[in-house]
Design a binder for these strands. Sequence first.
DNA 1: ATTGGAATTGACAACGCTGTCAGTTTGCTG
DNA 2: CAGCAAACTGACAGCGTTGTCAATTCCAAT
Lengths: 342, 342
Amino acid sequence: MNPERTKATIFDVARQAGVSIKTVSRVVNNEPNVRQRTREKVLRSVRELRYQPNAAARELGGKRSRVVGLIYENAQEFSYLNDLFNGALHICEPAGYTLLLRPLTLPDPEIIEHIRQFALNARVEGFVLPAPLGDLPEVPALLREMKIPFAAITPREPAPDEINILCNDEAACFSLTELLIDQGHRTIGFIKGHPDHGASAKRFAGYRQALKKHSLPYSARLVRQGYFDFDSGQAAADKLLNLPEPPSAILASNDDMAAGVIFEARGRGLSVPGDLSIAGFDDTRFSSRIWPPLTTVRQPIIKMAETAAGLLIDKLNGSATKAPEAPFECEVVIRESTASLD
Amino acid sequence: MNPERTKATIFDVARQAGVSIKTVSRVVNNEPNVRQRTREKVLRSVRELRYQPNAAARELGGKRSRVVGLIYENAQEFSYLNDLFNGALHICEPAGYTLLLRPLTLPDPEIIEHIRQFALNARVEGFVLPAPLGDLPEVPALLREMKIPFAAITPREPAPDEINILCNDEAACFSLTELLIDQGHRTIGFIKGHPDHGASAKRFAGYRQALKKHSLPYSARLVRQGYFDFDSGQAAADKLLNLPEPPSAILASNDDMAAGVIFEARGRGLSVPGDLSIAGFDDTRFSSRIWPPLTTVRQPIIKMAETAAGLLIDKLNGSATKAPEAPFECEVVIRESTASLD
DNA sequence: ATTGGAATTGACAACGCTGTCAGTTTGCTG
DNA sequence: CAGCAAACTGACAGCGTTGTCAATTCCAAT
């Protein structure tokens, strides 16, 4: 009745409900084989006493830590990480799971050892595995070896019985390229993303497909390798703009690089989008805040993270593996960094 | 010798070292009253067996969770949060503490209840409390009531026996203002930060002091209230630039707002810094990447977070409270958004 | 050697839960 | 209504630590 000074234990609930602690345990863990009437009686006591199972005792007794790990590359775009974390947390917290973050720095020859240690020390039961870590073959391999389930969020080929969340990078990049073509651009530069990210190849494929559909010639010199960071975007733009026949539009595989392109264009006194149209990918927090606001593609990261965490927890809770989800839809966001070619 | 399939327990270590489990516990926890020879013997076994105490058992037996909570406002600048988290993690992890993040959304009438639940459910032993949560009087009050130690990172008045980390916001803003004055600016607009942040008042004070030192008149119409976000910066710039005598320089209390000012200036066709000098505060990831790169102030967030976490853990481990640290030094970063007035 | 007190060590009971397994009840079937 | 399987329930032994307190050892001062 009155709020107890000390937290209620399973014994208190059992006594109040007039059952054994084991039955309380069954009810709390949603186990079968409890009569409906008993279940209700127990649940009432749980509520009245505000009973919350003690996590440490649970783990010690039952071998389940209810910890989900989220490992990520520390260099990632922050808003991406933030969405990832918030999405996963939305699901983990109400499900009674603790979400633990672990930044990793790439490249790192000992990355596998670091992940192994983290998994062991934090007793991680399952991992959310965003790009680019999910793209490294050795990370999924390690988790398979350790028999730790994971939900990868990256456009890789689906492995049987593994959870994999992806979005239609390719189609989105196709649309974006098509948009530029529709605006009259015929010479469109492309800056590839980091080769270790699965998304990079997809986005590039979308670009090529759009060219093909509109019977535009593909020229390798209009394509530069970038690494998803501002500087590589700027460097690539420098090369592209020095071409004898420079592009009238540049498509960068993410917003950081697109910002680098804008920076370079400005430095050369080019007006954007007057002299050069620029588009990015990701809809970073800042893409609407730089000048000019960036045309880009928004991925539903939060939803993807929620789905990943949800499927992972289902698996940890012993549910049957669900059929793979359809890819999530990206949305092209048209802003002022792209314009028709007059 | 050979890597055991199952993790070693305290019993294994005790057996190998020929002592009781209690002695192993003492050694592992660095407790006194163990003979040096015994200690070494035990440590050797610990190493050989790669013994790692089981966290769940520790908590259950000893009532110590070794969990440090980091609660933060979700709307905060991501790079700030990232530095905060990384700094705290650098300290917590090697010290054997788990760092748990908890985003909070402001304003929230139930914020106290949310924090209380988080503290209880996650068994948080101590909190790292960055701005603006540390600035809200009710949050420290709650933690005091719950008897949970915390380390605040915000420029508030030091409370006896409480850990508080701050940096010299005021002096830094003074320098920044002085820089503009030295460049010949006489009409300097100022955009205040969010009123709920302690830093806002400090930064404003630095601005006023610099004016005073250089005998420049203070005019309230040159000062606008902002809220640390892009839009409020843009809105404030709009007002300031509509003044009959618009400022030749605008000092924004953070970089997001400064970005808004740049955006507004561009929209009006003003050249930066030719027609208008702009400076910010925080040295956000993007401040060097927008055009023009922003003159700003860099705070040593990582170091501040490391110090906060370190002092907090010392306290949790029962060390004597250390004397308060001197404020951390900020660094003025001069880039291209500010220039001399010709 | 002897002794008293401090330093060191160990035995054992928690801690709060889950797993195992045996015992009890229920609900059908014939 | 007996008989039996299935459904339900509970007793109890762990799980791997730490806290308590009593036992032992050590050491300097008799």
